[in-house]
């Protein structure tokens, strides 16, 4: 009888541990930035910055000038350009952007275009000063509608707020070539 009771206790303990292991949120879902939704007007407020999504543009190729030379970048997919207005709140900050695609995939800013004028990856934002940077992503067309832009302070992706903007209702008109100036 006591053997049976011991066996039951072990089995019950094992079952409880298994249930806990399978229902507790994992490391990757616990250590995530907190999602803060931007308002209807496209303005979102994170802990360290305020950002507004002014518009989206898409293009098959992007050209810009760098050190007096013309640079052209083309793609087999689409370049999505997000025009933003960002100001820091209490301290100078760099911001990074991610496009969460319609299929759930995550697109970081394209490193092929990190040197464009007004590029987000090179900008630093100061409190009470608003800057208008561009975040550029390279992604397939069908990731745009149903996807959403997410902004977060650089270096604090975990346990800090990330501003989620509303998904675009329709895809922006695709230009063959987009010229980016200062």
């Amino acid at each position: 009888m006591s053997h049976l009771a011991n066996l039951m206790a072990v089995a019950l303990g094992g079952a409880m541990l298994g249930a806990m292991m399978n229902t507790l949120p994992g490391y990757d879902s616990s250590f995530q930035p907190f999602a803060v939704d931007a308002g209807e007007n496209g303005v979102g407020q994170g802990r360290l910055f305020t950002a507004e999504l002014i518009g989206l543009r898409s293009a098959g190729a992007i050209s810009y000038e760098r050190y007096g030379k013309n640079v052209v970048r083309d793609t087999s997919a689409t370049f999505l350009v997000a025009e933003l207005a960002i100001s820091a709140r209490e301290e100078s900050r760099q911001i990074e952007a991610v496009w969460l695609g319609a299929t759930g995939r995550q697109y970081n800013q394209s490193t092929r275009l990190e040197n464009v004028p007004r590029g987000l990856s090179q900008a630093r934002f100061e409190p009470r000063l608003t800057d208008r940077p561009l975040a550029i992503f390279e992604l397939p067309d069908d990731e745009i509608v149903g996807g959403r832009l997410v902004l977060m302070a650089r270096g604090s992706m975990r346990m800090d707020s990330a501003v989620h903007f509303a998904s675009p209702a329709s895809a922006p008109e695709r230009q063959a070539m987009l010229r980016l100036g200062p």
Partner: peptide, 10 residues
Amino acid sequence: LGQIEPRIRE
């Protein structure tokens, strides 16, 4: 090469 994106073959 700096980065490759999902679903885009290069």
